[in-house]
Design a protein around this nucleic acid. Structure first.
Lengths: 318, 318
DNA sequence: GCTACGTCTTTTATCGTTATAAGACTGCGG
DNA sequence: CCGCAGTCTTATAACGATAAAAGACGTAGC
């Protein structure tokens, strides 16, 4: 495993975990994709830009890759010596930040059936359960509280409001308000606005998806997300775009567990999206509004059915 | 000073401040109001309920009040011995939680002129400046980020978005959407809904205010807040009501500094509120909508003028 | 003279620790 | 037997500390 070979103080990681080196590991894995034998790597700064990290971390990665014989590195010259093997990659669970671990554990708990509305949550208990410090849990809960699913009383415990039908209805009420306004704004965008080109691209992706049923369906949530975010972008309102984070989160996690009629649902959504796109293109706000309303109504119905139906917990604990 | 006389480990507070005893001090001050010579105090649990604190803190307070000779306490019997003097009160700055200190310092910075949009904020710098730990600052910033005025890049610094005209316009766009919907919902409330009685009470308060110009004007922001929150309550939507927190925060802090034509502004708002209330009572959604729109438009104008005008910093550092 | 690297400093993410505050349990007493 | 107080345990709100990661500065080399 790569970690054993690095010159980093990996031993410390097991004695006192002050900060996980997830940035290093994730970027290390990403950089392996660039390694083709004989290739000469660009400057440290350029690598940092491509990987989205600082030069400090780039240098750590290069050091580590020298240590396992992947590259030769002498000042400006960095040459790839051998192609990366599967063993060169850090396992996925080590590239996860603490906060994302907390997030996953928490969502699993709150979006599953056993989270009765009104039940209370204990910071230290939960921290022990997940295996992180209370501060990490605390910061997550504060961050998460903006989604309206939890609340806190000063000096007291957190209260889970529960992912109830009422929550879903309130969520969709606001979603409809915001998306209708965004759709109308979208229709009014001048034809040379880059959003139209982006819409063309997304429409093409939709048609691709319809062409190969089942094959790439797993990737639909991502497409869905990008489609709606594109529309919301036309509102030029940070509160509107920020609100989509709530929706996105809910959908992302909730639908992970209700795989039942996934293909059907997605196919319906794809077709509704295409109608919706047509409405936007028509230039008539009322048309756009009509198809927008239609799609949102069916999305709401799907979500409500999922909430009311037998709430299946996630397949496994990860 | 009361702290010196208490049996609590007050010395530690100066060596290692792990948690400020603001709950104790605030409740101590509040409880002094109940002390009339000869009165026999209720049970510990009852005192806790009245003061909004736990029995543990109640007992600390009673201990402290025995120590300074305010009361005699023997098991169930607690009798007031002497009336509280001004020196018995803890000074106001000691009843402030760390988080509220951070909040005040931060708002002063971000809502004043010198917060250029795009400038970056440093957790440790800011913590040093305010004199609290980085964790306290961190948690505050996370909590505050939901207001859309700051953002954070993973592993990097915070970015101040600035309290700009664009921010105000986006804020009001959403405010209008939400408040119009809430106002319409309010009109449709059945006449026996308690909200109508609350509206009556608030209307009476408005008339009182108009009667005594200037005198109680300082208290107007509070009335304004309660009025709008009452209306938003009719929406029965947590996202709508939560959003009013943003508005409330902005108004509260921004208007602290623009005292210029405060009386005029408030008088105008009072009259607009009364029209608005009339609209709600009329039973016609369109009437309510008309006066709601009118009031919000004038509120927006006032805020925009304040942003564009000479941005006066707060009078003093507190 | 600009780009890239070596070195050093600063900041962030996360941890563990502690005094305060909440809350649970138990037994007394009217 | 119910409410109240005595006692004990646990949780929260702060803190400081540390390794990872970012970033700043100076200098070497093309």
């Amino acid at each position: 495993m790569a970690a054993l070979a690095t010159t980093r103080t990996w031993l410390h990681a097991w004695l006192l975990m002050s900060k996980r080196d997830t940035v290093f590991k994730e970027a290390y894995n990403a950089s392996l994709g660039m390694l083709k034998v004989g290739v000469v790597l660009p400057s440290e700064a350029e690598l940092g830009r491509r990987l989205g990290i600082s030069r400090t971390t780039v240098r750590s990665i290069l050091d580590a890759q020298v240590a396992v014989g992947l590259i030769a590195w002498n000042r400006r010259h960095k040459e790839v010596l051998r192609p990366p093997e599967p063993e060169d990659y850090f396992p996925a669970d080590e590239t996860d930040t603490v906060s994302s671990m907390v997030e996953r554990a928490f969502l699993q708990r709150i979006l599953s059936a056993d989270a009765q509305p009104g039940s209370q949550l204990n910071e230290s208990d939960f921290a022990r359960e997940v295996g992180v410090s209370t501060s990490a849990v605390r910061e997550f809960l504060i961050r998460f509280s903006r989604f309206g699913l939890i609340e806190k009383q000063r000096n007291r415990h957190w209260v889970l409001n529960g992912f109830t039908e009422a929550f879903a209805l309130e969520l969709f009420e606001v979603r409809e308000m915001f998306e209708l306004r965004s759709a109308r704004a979208f229709v009014r965008l001048p034809r040379d606005n880059p959003a139209w080109a982006a819409l063309d691209a997304i429409e093409a992706e939709h048609r691709d998806f319809l062409g190969q049923p089942g094959a790439r369906m797993r990737a639909f949530p991502d497409l869905d997300d990008r489609f709606h975010r594109l529309i919301h972008g036309a509102s030029h309102n940070r509160f509107v775009t920020d609100f989509y984070d709530v929706i996105s989160l809910i959908f992302h996690f909730h639908y992970q567990w209700s795989k039942a009629d996934e293909l059907d649902r997605n196919a319906t959504a794809l077709r509704e999206h295409l109608d919706y796109i047509g409405g936007l293109r028509s230039g008539h706000e009322l048309d756009a509004e009509f198809y927008c309303r239609k799609h949102l109504a069916s999305a709401r119905l799907t979500l409500l059915r999922a909430i009311k139906g037998p709430n299946v917990p996630p397949p496994d604990g990860t």
